[in-house]
Design a protein around this nucleic acid. Sequence first.
DNA 1: ACTCTGTCTCAAGACGGG
DNA 2: TTGAGACAGAGT
DNA 3: CCCGTCC
Length: 481
Amino acid sequence: MKTGITLVGLIDCLRKYTCKCFGIIFFLLSPQPRLNKARLRFSSASPSSPPSNLTFYTRFRQHLGLQQLSLLFTRWVLKVTTLSEQILHLRSLANTRYPGLFHLLQENTQDSIKDGEIKQHFGRKIAIDASMSIYSFLIAVRSEGQQLTSETGETTSHLMGLFYRTLRMVDNGIKPLYVFDGRPPTLKSGELAKRSARKAEATAAHAEAKEVGTAEEVEKFSRRTVRVTKEINDECKRLLTCMGIPYVEAPCEAEAQCAALAKAGKVYAAASDDMDTLCFETPILLKKLMLSEMKKEPVQEIYLDRAMQELGFTRDQFIDLCILLGCDYCDTIPKVGPTTALKLIREHKSIENVLSHLGPKYAVPKKWPYQDARELFKNPLITDPDECEFKWEAPDIDKLVAFLVGEKGFNEDRVRAGAVKLSKNLKGNTQARVNDFFKPVPKTAEELAGLKRKSEEKAAERKKKVKAEKAEKGKGKKGKR
DNA sequence: ACTCTGTCTCAAGACGGG
DNA sequence: TTGAGACAGAGT
DNA sequence: CCCGTCC
């Protein structure tokens, strides 16, 4: 059994003990702290616990090396920590998750999901959750069970994947913007079971007993957990810099930041396979962006406004629906699946009303923080998109070669060939920008009615198909679409 | 019939040669 | 590990 | 399209 504490426990420890650690936590969550208005904005919400002692204040200031440290700033830090804690806590509570939203949209709307080709996105800027990608590279890019490594034994899987995937995107005229998680991904995906949350408490209590050793212990732990990931992240950032591809650091969740950028029109869309991104109000979500070319599967383009229009939902209702379907932050109500959830929201318009009209057959979980989940969707912790500056530049070929070939043992010809593609495609930087402000036109009521009809027809057809397939069972298989 | 749920399974990156 | 599809079984 | 290789 692994010994370990979760971030929840970690933060708890840190809050109780050393002030220096607040700095560490801060850097975990937002590696490039910069005082600006956008960030201070978050201070408006009152922190759950004010910075109680002066020591914290001064030591944190020393740690950051800032001359002035406004109270607002420290409050922002507190806000970050408490929000992260909240998110992680909520996630640890949710154990079942429905993948239902996509299917629900597929079956109940006509126009919100569009299949397309990657080439259609030529010249567009697209925000991508870097941490997700890197994580999947680390898992998938393997040879004989081992990750690819340089001569010195350092892992290079992530660089490999990132390099070639980015190349392919650029080659297709897409301008990727990578968004890094504020939180280290290992903590998120790793040991965050309920069980270990309890353990964390125990660990924290244990730490409380030894007042002295705590800080170092905690620091050691955080290093152990974070270090690899942080290095990997840094390498990826370095690679991106060499390639002339911009990236952004999200204070908390990358998904939320991607959505915010898309919403502000800074990028055309957010690319993710996670439907939760829709709840953060990205106007357009691209699913399976990179699978398309390889496997000849279409890129799925999901329009939030069309989805809401066709469902007849407001944004609040849409979020409530997603919560009922099951999101990262809380469980579902037993016996409420996609169909029932849709019906309930259609009928009662909000979770509050649903709850008050629910029959006794439905047992709402005792601890069901749907309001918190809703709040996280509606007011996620993000950096103001207007404060994010990014541009695509020509690659620094010498640095790129020095890095990948010199340090990591990549094939020089391949890297150089890639660099050529990069500089070729990123040249026309300014002219393509016009395309990015295209947005789907809202539908008129008439069109909507038509769509509804179509959608119903489609649903009927679908059902027939299912039946037909069932009836025809035993014979050969039929390809979809 | 319809819906929800548990369980099982598999793949998960990208490229290029044959 | 996570996510998605297929499928069987239970509840309505 | 399958399958071995990338590092």
